[in-house]
Amino acid sequence: MSRPELQTPPELFYNDKMSKKYNSNSRMVGIQAEISDRCIELLNIPPGQSYFILDVGCGSGLSGEALEEAGHVWLGVDISRDMLDVANERETDFGDLCQHDMGTGLPFRPATFDGCISVSALQWLCYAQTSEQVAKTRLLRFFSSLYATLKRGSRAALQFYPDSTEQAVLISSCAARAGFTGGLVIDYPNSTKAKKYYLCLSFEHGYKTPAAKRAEPEGGAAAAKFDGGSRERRGHRGKPKKGKVAKTRNWVLAKKDQQRRQGRDVRDDNKFTGRKRKDKF
């Protein structure tokens, strides 16, 4: 499936038909609910507390439903009127809705919300829909207004689908420029389908991003971290030395494991796995 962001602006893409489809597709509903629950978990709210949460790109209110189940009062913002109409029909008790374009800065007074979640919305900001729009300006406007409107000490967990690494870096560097600390948490980094990016933001210095979820404890580096104000820093990996890759039994086993996690068809391990061939046939 091609990316909807490349086709039309969100307010046109999520039209009447698409909004209803979005809401009745049980696979989408399942994924959205799962992501929302994970976002709420990442906010790290003390149990039993009822908070006032901002939901950016609330769409048809699926994430709001998850917030409500967790006992919070929420305010949803979305650009698509058709999506909001679907959300309105849902008759949520503890939610309110507002139509707005997050790229023009959130219209809320300072220090009002106890947290912010967003499900699959941030990447929309990266695409210029009209000639007046510049992705970076829109991202910066969004993050600085979010920084202002969140209560000090609260957190934000924003899930999004970056189309490239550069895009993920652009988004997180904009967040850092607005003053947030935090970083990306990548759940299930080894899987193509289940892989999810969460941008976890906080006001605390020395805030450590929560651990990412993965199928098994070992695996590649999953959490990229940055400090407020500074550019993202990555460890240098360096080129592997040529001709010196020793394909030991452990290396082969790890590789096979990785491919299994990706759902590929992999032969079972046995005593011959990773054994060297005789020099001569």
Binding site: F52, L75, C98, L106, P107, F108, R109, T112, T149
Partner: peptide
């Protein structure tokens, strides 16, 4: 729209100073 939302909303038109309430 509830009053809790109204209490948070402000107008963020360019050039407007507080835009509240």
């Amino acid at each position: 729209m509830r009053l809790i939302t109204h209490n948070m909303l402000k107008s963020n038109i360019k050039g407007v100073e507080s835009g509240y309430p």
